[in-house]
């Protein structure tokens, strides 16, 4: 079994901020917009280094999305920054019409996604954003797992033409993917090879999936772990290949099971290789206040529950 080392916990939002800082230096077409959350999104360095390319729009997300669409006209690559809830649900129609339907090269960068912003509660958490964004034709949807991968994704999406939703979060989480690693949009990463069950995880739950494999291994269960950082377009080939090998699947995400990664995987498998599947996701509910760890435990989004679901799905083979 491959051992992954946490090289020092960091927040994924800082991966975005540091990636944006680097982009600011190497790509003069990159512009950034923020709706009064510059510090929370870690966009300060970009704002300080390039004040002429940084647009503080105030608490006006709808205007921000429209402005971002307009900034592509003339060749700029706009990156918008606010919380995931205000990046999607609040401005869905603006994204739909002015960005997605209009084929605009806008990068919607969303922090504080899922439950793990914690104490602010359900108004500031969002568990529906992956579904909202993946339903938009032409939208690329990315949910990164750690600091290094978020930084790499931030750099990669600048070179990809088309609208992108990049989802990351607030808490400090294990940083375990390679520093300055390559990020290929739409390409799954096989983290752990196994034979009994496939765990397909995205975002913060990728590390939890790796932790779950340790517990499973002690019970003599060999789990394969796939990191799906790109939910759309989905790497269907990697999913089908692994399902054929192990014969059962657990999906894990910090999102509602409705509209999330799990449903995309289920569709892929039902069309190509019907396979028993269990879902680690929230169960059609809003979040609530609490510490990130408490919330992940209460809603079953942790290594312990991933391992339980793995054992359950193996029995369904």
């Amino acid at each position: 079994m491959k051992i992954y080392e946490n090289t020092g916990s960091k927040d994924t939002r800082s991966g975005f901020g540091d990636g944006l800082t680097e982009l600011g230096q190497k790509n003069e077409n990159v512009v950034a917009l923020c709706a009064d959350l510059t510090g929370s999104l870690k966009m300060n360095a970009f704002a300080n280094n390039h004040p002429e390319r940084f647009f503080q729009v105030g608490i006006a997300e709808a205007n921000m999305m429209g402005m971002a669409a307009g900034m592509t006209i003339g060749g700029k690559i706009p990156f918008t920054g606010t919380f995931a809830n205000f990046s999607t649900g609040r401005v869905y129609d603006q994204i739909r019409q002015s960005i997605a339907y209009s084929d605009k090269n806008v990068k919607i960068c969303a922090s504080h996604s899922g439950l793990t912003l914690g104490e602010d509660g359900a108004t500031h958490q969002i568990l529906e954003d992956i579904g909202l964004m993946k339903m938009l034709p032409g939208m690329t949807v990315i949910n990164t797992c750690d600091y290094n991968q978020t930084k790499a994704a931030t750099l990669a999406i600048a070179d990809h033409h088309g609208p992108v939703y990049l989802r990351f979060g607030r808490p400090k989480v294990a940083n375990f993917t390679p520093e300055n690693g390559e990020f290929k949009i739409g390409k799954a990463v096989l983290l752990q090879e196994g034979t009994d069950v496939t765990i397909i995880a995205t975002g913060h739950l990728v590390w939890e999936a790796l932790e779950a494999t340790k517990a499973l291994n002690e019970k003599g269960i060999s789990a394969e772990v796939i990191n799906i950082h790109t939910i759309k377009p989905l790497d269907e080939e990697a999913i089908i290949k692994s399902a054929k090998k192990t014969g059962c699947v657990v999906t894990a995400e910090e999102h509602n099971f409705l509209g999330g990664l799990g449903e995309s995987v289920a569709r892929t498998l039902s069309l190509n290789h019907p396979t028993p599947q269990e879902f680690v996701a929230t169960n059609d509910t809003f979040g609530e206040s609490g510490t990130p760890a408490q919330l992940l435990e209460k809603y079953g989004l942790n290594a312990e529950n991933i391992a339980l679901k793995a054992e359950a799905v193996i029995k369904r083979k």
């Binding site: 512009v31 709808a62 921000m64 429209g66 307009g70 006209i73 603006q94 002015s98 339907y101 209009s102």
Partner: peptide
């Protein structure tokens, strides 16, 4: 809509209230 590639159209519109924001973005880039 820009979706069908009609020359002269730079943004989709129909759902109201969005064009001024788009224009501000384009004006800032100018």
């Amino acid at each position: 809509t820009t979706h069908e590639g009609l020359p002269g159209v730079r943004i989709a519109s129909g759902s109201l209230g969005q064009g001024m924001s788009v224009a501000i973005g384009a004006a800032a880039v100018k």
